[in-house]
Design a protein around this nucleic acid. Structure first.
Lengths: 191, 191, 191, 191
DNA sequence: CATGAATGAGTGTTCATTCAT
DNA sequence: TATGAATGAACACTCATTCAT
């Protein structure tokens, strides 16, 4: 059962996300955050020792939620290409539907708030995808002479641009375009 | 009378870049900027009417410099693949060697400082690359059934990730890796 | 939670009056005002949105207090000359005892802070006195061939000079002088 | 012959008057003054050691000009009432036609810029008028039992209000009104 | 625990004054 | 002499944080 207080913290996170996506990480003030989440400024300091801690915990919260979504529905029993596509689409969908989370994670990442420790944690986000790539190599389906990193970066960068374009510009993702995009990616990495 | 020293403006831009790349766009204060560029705060207001104008002009300055670098050495007389690779490497090199410029352009783009007008200007950065893509299609070398936009995004996203990884992580670009990266990109888009 | 202390607002007004009467309206700085009224600068902005609003509200406050004092003790049942003298003395006393209020009202009136709307409000200060003048005409006691305005200005200007002289110079008002001053005014306007 | 430099100083005075009458004494900045008078800020500091000195000298300049105008055309050979009226009208005309000078003199008088010494100088402005009053008493035309000061204040205050009303409000002085105003004043002081 | 008034250091900007030309 | 770029202290105002209730 979700405790009352836990719910309040989530409310604050969501309000924070909204303010940040509208005005950037610098646009978040404790007063504004309090107003939007319907609590008093003093109350924020009961749940978070400081603005810094608020950001830290917010980062962990959304990083984990993102991670969960990436591998959703992935089943190692299904054929590799099916699984890879699932991850590809998961990432794209996540970044479109939860765009403000992505924006926050990236802005936080380049802010004075991030710590070394958290920097390391960010790496963990890649692990599950790396596993899928390794499997593709084992199954002799994707290029063996290319680093895992490079393959990862090629795919992730593509998806990222597609999603950002969808959210902020006229170029919208449709099922057909998703199909073509994945085909492009496949052509790139396939053996 | 001392005459206005417009070299000072570039000094200010560079100091701004440094502060922003270290602390994010919110980390740039007029006092800090003055200190780092070795002038008094009041002096900044001789050259820029406000912090907002400073950002606007800084944006234009670095956007133009970036644009110039992208097409450097591109010669339409050379074969298409040679030309495309030049653009690919230009972009990668630019983003590595002038990483803080890229960071600034992106942070500014998501800040409350950007105006509609400038938003439109940003689009212009893509034009030259689009032209190259169109040529590839005319020469029947790259896939005809894929939007220019998608091809552009796939390549740009890849390069972007490679460069950021190079600058902020352990994964460094070497001539061999650049070769392989371009080969991957080529496999993706070639007919 | 501490509740807003509106007594604090009056403290601020008084501190403002003191600073203005000493250094002119330009001599009032928010920092100085905070120091003199014993609060932090930030606190001023809890009670007033801006320096401009502070002045606006301060103006209304002192204008109303002044107005109240002008007609104090005036009773239409008493004979006209008694009533007129009461108003005359009220105005003189007010301007002597609350000289800094008068100074503020006048300085504000000539400052860039005043608005059209408030300009109109200032006119209201004259109304009660005009009524007294009209009564004198009806009772055939004061000159009928002179505008109300001119009669008003003659009396008000005289009182004003007397009070300012009393406060800032050696020429002090005494009961005898007040008597003589009113007699002079009476000689001027009587039929 | 007026030297070139002296002309520049006067230009500065006039520009100052204009700025002050528009925005109050606090609205005068050295930069604005330089702009309006068509010189550089640095040049102002060749002619005036500081803003304070500028005000001091400006005050003396306009005080003297005012003084000159008050007694203009007064001829002790003419009958007393004629002479008194001339002074009355001179003062009224001066304050209407050179209203911004009057505003400056008064604002300066209540500013942190005025010195004790200048305060004393201000008194001198009254002397010529006092002489006229004394003559009226000698000629047994005006009340003997009233102080010179009080008679002076009554007249000056009246004129002042009339002029200010004329300049800033709808109530305009006309030859007829001037006639009536002087008659009122005469009724007040006459024996 | 919850509130929002209170705090004062810090922000962007202005301004009297100085100084190199 | 004349210029206006350069300076830095001071201004109005904001904001993370504390504290009385």
């Amino acid at each position: 059962m979700r405790s009352k207080d836990y719910g309040k913290v989530e409310l604050v996170y969501e309000a924070g996300l909204e303010l940040i996506s509208r005005e950037g990480i610098a646009g978040l003030t404790m007063k504004g955050l309090a107003a939007r989440s319907g609590v008093a400024t003093g109350t924020l300091y009961i749940y978070f020792r400081s603005k810094e801690e608020l950001f830290h915990r917010m980062y962990l919260y959304y990083r984990n939620r993102s991670l969960d979504r990436f591998m959703q529905g992935y089943d190692p029993v299904e054929p590799f290409r099916i699984g890879l596509k699932k991850v590809f689409v998961n990432y794209l969908t996540h970044r479109i539907e939860h765009h403000s989370e992505s924006i926050f994670l990236e802005q936080y990442y380049r802010s004075p708030y991030i710590t070394e420790e958290q920097n390391a944690l960010a790496e963990a986000m890649k692990h599950p995808v790396y596993e899928v790539i390794k499997r593709g190599k084992r199954e002799m389906l994707i290029k063996n002479d290319i680093d895992d990193e490079m393959l990862f970066l090629a795919m992730i960068g593509f998806v990222r641009e597609l999603a950002d374009e969808h959210v902020t510009k006229q170029y919208k993702m449709t099922p057909e375009r998703i199909e073509k995009a994945f085909q492009l990616a496949w052509d790139m990495i396939k053996m």
